[in-house]
Amino acid sequence: MTDLLVFGRTGQLARELAALAPDATFLGRDAADLTDPAACADAIRRAAPGAVINAAAYTAVDRAESDADTARLVNANSPAAMARACAELGILFLHVSTDYVFDGAGDAPRSEDAPTGPLGVYGATKLAGEQAIAAAGGQWAVLRTSWVFSAYGSNFVKTMLRLGAERDRLTVVADQIGGPTFAADIAAAALTMIGRMRDGATGDVYHFAGWPDVSWAGFACEIVAQAGLSAEVAEIPTADYPTPAPRPLNSRLDCTRIARDFGIMRPDWRAGLGRVLTQLKDKA
Rank of each mutant, 00 (worst) to 15 (best):
T2I: 05
D3N: 11
L4D: 04
T10H: 15
G11H: 06
L13I: 15
E16Y: 10
A18E: 03
A19C: 08
L20E: 10
T35S: 14
D36I: 02
P37Y: 09
P37L: 11
A38E: 15
A39I: 12
A43C: 06
A43P: 01
I44R: 01
I44L: 09
R46L: 13
A47R: 03
A48M: 11
G50K: 00
G50C: 08
A56Q: 03
A56I: 01
Y58W: 14
Y58F: 15
T59F: 04
T59Q: 04
A68H: 09
T70A: 12
A71F: 13
L73E: 14
V74A: 14
A76Q: 13
A81T: 06
R84E: 09
A87M: 05
G90N: 13
L94T: 10
Y100S: 05
V101E: 00
V101K: 01
D103G: 13
G104L: 10
G106F: 14
P109Q: 08
R110I: 03
S111C: 11
S111G: 15
A114K: 00
P115H: 12
P118A: 14
L119T: 05
G120M: 07
A124G: 14
L127P: 01
G129R: 08
Q131L: 14
A132N: 06
G137F: 09
G138A: 10
Q139F: 03
W140Q: 02
R144S: 05
T145M: 11
T145W: 04
S146Q: 09
W147T: 01
G153T: 02
N155H: 09
R162C: 03
D168H: 07
T171A: 14
V172H: 08
G178H: 10
P180Y: 15
T181F: 09
T181Y: 07
A183M: 05
A187G: 11
A187Y: 04
L191D: 03
M193Q: 01
R198P: 03
G200E: 14
G200M: 07
G203W: 04
G203D: 02
G203N: 03
Y206S: 07
F208P: 10
A209F: 08
P212Q: 11
P212A: 13
A217K: 13
A220P: 00
A245H: 10
R252H: 11
F262R: 03
F262A: 12
G263K: 00
M265V: 09
D268T: 05
G272S: 10
G272N: 06
G274D: 01
V276H: 07
